[in-house]
Every structure is written in structure tokens, then in C-alpha cells.
Amino acid sequence: MTPVTKETFESEVLKAEKPVLVDFNAGWCGPCKAMKPILEEFEASTPDVKFVSVDIDDQDELAEDWDVASIPCLVLFKGGAEAKRSVGLVSRDAISELVGA
């Protein structure tokens, strides 16, 4: 999952051709770490969706910009806009629904 910053968010996420799932996370967040390998599985099995990651400790402005106030937070972007979001540790089925897998 490509790390994305304030500088690259527009090109990597907003202007991406494919839908993009952004994983807002942090190193201190246990549920985020627990979900990471699952997201990586989905990344491998869902080529229609791009998966990127935002470390909210480094990228607090991005978290602020997108109203992320609880992590793990997964936001699906389509055509430069937020399409769907899930907050908290979620099941594989919920991730599957989010990315349309």
C-alpha cells in the first residue's frame, strides 16, 4: 500500500483513474495494525481498486481536511470525491462491501 502525503494526495488519490481506498492509520493504533494484513490481501485480490495509506501522525492536515477523527478509518474515493467510509475495526465482509470486491 503506497504511503500518501499532503503533497501527493491530489495526484495519487483525487486524480487517480481507479477508485482509491485510503487507509488512515497510525503506528500506535492496534486495530489499524490488525487490519493491515487484511487490507494487503484485498489489495492483491482487487486490482480494480488502488490501495494507499496515510499515516495521520505525519499527515495531520490530511486527517483534518477529510474529517478523520477516529482510526482505523477507510475512505473510498471515486472521481476525486469521497464515496464511502468505514470507521473502526471492521470485518472482511465490510471491507469487501467498501471496495465492491
Binding site: 486527517a63 478523520v68 477523527a69 477516529s70 482510526i71 470507521v87 473502526g88
Partner: peptide, 17 residues
Amino acid sequence: LVGRGVSYCATCDGNFY
């Protein structure tokens, strides 16, 4: 509003506030 102001875990989300 969970994740947009409502939280059930202060140690998880406190930093945002």
C-alpha cells in the same frame, strides 16, 4: 458521527482533540 466527533475510546482518539 462516530469518527466525526463521537468516540468510545479516549486513548484511541484523544489525539484528534
